[in-house]
Computed example of a mutant assay.
Amino acid sequence: ASLDEAAALLPSLARRVFLTTGRLGLAAFAHLTDLHFVVRSVDPPEPPMPPHTEVLLARGPFTTADESALLREHRIDVLVTKDSGGEATSAKLTAARELALPVVVVRRPPLPEGVDAVPDVAGVLERLGLGP
């Protein structure tokens, strides 16, 4: 449900973590001094970070082949990512599945009270009175 809960799971799952939860929130993992992290982010992450962290600055999209190569090269044994929806996470999830790696997915936080969501562009257009 949260980055803190994801961090609590890691010591029982793995030693080498591929962390793709964004540049913010690494503080939740900073106390995990016995694990090695490979953090991928578009922009440099915000400290504090875990002491054994390798940062990869990169912007997708990434292919399944790219993700598989990265997981193998860095000897990753668990993937931690956010539920961002869409195609953005599919390649790394497929690569992890193909390599039989456990995956920890951090849920999206609930919407604030009074905020409604629509599932697609058609719903947005309808909400704005521009749709059918």
Rank of each mutant, 00 (worst) to 15 (best):
L32V: 07
V115W: 05
R16G: 02
P48C: 08
D43M: 13
L128K: 01
P45D: 06
G86E: 08
L79V: 09
G60C: 09
A96C: 11
A8P: 02
D77V: 02
T64G: 04
V115P: 03
P44T: 14
S84A: 15
L57K: 13
F18A: 06
L71Q: 01
R16Q: 07
L99E: 08
A6C: 10
V55T: 09
R97N: 10
H74V: 06
M49R: 05
H52Q: 15
V103H: 06
S41Y: 04
T64W: 00
T21M: 06
A69T: 14
R16A: 05
L10F: 04
H52A: 14
G129V: 08
A1V: 12
P132D: 08
S2G: 10
V104S: 11
R15F: 00
R40F: 00
R59H: 13
R16K: 13
A122T: 08
V42T: 15
E87V: 13
D34K: 09
V105W: 04
P45M: 08
E113T: 14
D116L: 12
G129Y: 05
P61D: 10
V17Y: 01
V105P: 07
H36Q: 15
A100P: 00
D77P: 02
A88L: 12
L99F: 06
A14Y: 02
P132F: 03
S84Y: 05
G25V: 03
R40H: 04
A8L: 07
T53N: 08
S2I: 09
V42K: 15
